[in-house]
Simulated scan of single mutants.
Amino acid sequence: METSPSFAGPFALGTFSAGDGPAFPGLVAEGRVLDLRTVPELDLPEPTTRALLERWDDVLPLLTEAARSTAGEWLPWSALRVHAPVEPRQLFQAGANYRTHVIDLVVAHEPPNGRPPEQVRAEAAAMMDRRAAEGEPYVFLGLPSSITGPYDPVVIPSWCEKPDWELELAAVIGRPAFRVSRERALEHVAAYTIANDITAREAVFRKDVGEMGADWLRAKNAPTFTPLGPYLVPAAFVGDPGDLQVTLRLNGEVMQDESTKDMIFDVARIVSAVSQTVRLLPGDLVLTGSPAGNGLHHGRLLRPGDVMEGTITGLGVQRNRCVAEEEG
């Protein structure tokens, strides 16, 4: 865990438990956590952060007031277990959405005796420019069952030989969204959080299905493959989601360190694109892609004992240790 909670704004939300007790939604402020079950004004139908998100427009002013109050049961943050901050119904993941990352991948996949790297990079950059101007975000489905807490172990399955990290900004839906415009899309985002989209690289492309595409089910959805959190930071406190720094350290060494300015499609464009097909619901997560610096780029994939530390500007820190399946 972090030594103390750190995030943008006066408060954030999370899911916590004390001892062997049940998980509960909490408001984090000044190193303490307010058990939101003890705030009668909220009138929670169920004690979850998703229940708060379902009434976000009404709840946000009440949370603002609660953060200033001494009423309710306040607990020391350091005495609590921090869980994934929300349990979504739906999980959407944008792929190939950072310009530098995609260009690096194109260069890396060029045959050894192929074109010069400078030519490949220039052609890939031109392709990204065309995609940004004329294309649409590439989005696939993830499974909520892959989510784990921000400080919990990441279990590497016994069959997985090439586990890789992908730190990402995740938008958390508040207002339901269906066929919303890009201009209105961010009105439906209640908060932001950190996600690490762990990928089994050897499972992405299956040789037995030809051009049918990538096998994202097996590659990305093992239990614990999506560390999430630690907090839901209200969008109003985050500022411009297109100007945040995404940083992942592996055993203390910086591996990813890129601004969300490098996104090909911004958060609004991705949320709008998903909503053209799917009705987004409160608590749903929209992951926005991972920047350059994955393990394949560094020639160094995850191993048991590795510790990943992920930060995004204003959203706190998550820290996960990798363990072999038999240790998990």
Results as ranks from 00 to 15, higher is better:
Arg175Gly: 05
Asp197Ala: 01
Tyr192Asp: 02
Arg184Thr: 15
Arg179Ala: 14
Arg201Ala: 08
Thr199Lys: 04
Arg182Thr: 15
Val172Ser: 05
His188Trp: 08
Gly174Glu: 03
Ala190Phe: 10
Ile198Cys: 00
Ile194Pro: 00
Arg182Ala: 13
Val172Tyr: 08
Ile198Arg: 01
Glu168Arg: 01
Glu166Ser: 07
Ile173His: 04
Thr193Arg: 05
Asp197Ile: 00
Phe178Cys: 12
Glu183Met: 12
Arg182Gly: 13
Asp197Trp: 03
Trp165Tyr: 13
Val172Met: 03
Leu186Trp: 03
Asp197Met: 07
Pro176Trp: 14
Leu167Asn: 06
Glu202Pro: 02
Leu167Pro: 08
Ile198Glu: 00
Leu167Tyr: 12
Ile173Pro: 03
Tyr192Asn: 02
Ser181Thr: 15
Phe178Arg: 15
Ala171Cys: 11
Leu186Asp: 05
Thr199His: 05
Glu187Tyr: 12
Thr193Ile: 11
Phe178Ile: 13
Glu183Lys: 15
Asn196Glu: 01
Ala170Glu: 02
Trp165Asp: 04
Val180Cys: 11
Arg184Cys: 10
Arg182Glu: 15
His188Ser: 12
Glu202Ile: 00
Ala195Phe: 01
Arg179Leu: 12
Ile198Gln: 09
Ala171Trp: 00
Leu169Asn: 04
Thr193Ala: 08
Trp165Val: 02
Arg182Tyr: 09
Glu166Tyr: 04
Arg184Asn: 14
Ala191Lys: 07
Gly174Lys: 06
Ile194Gly: 09
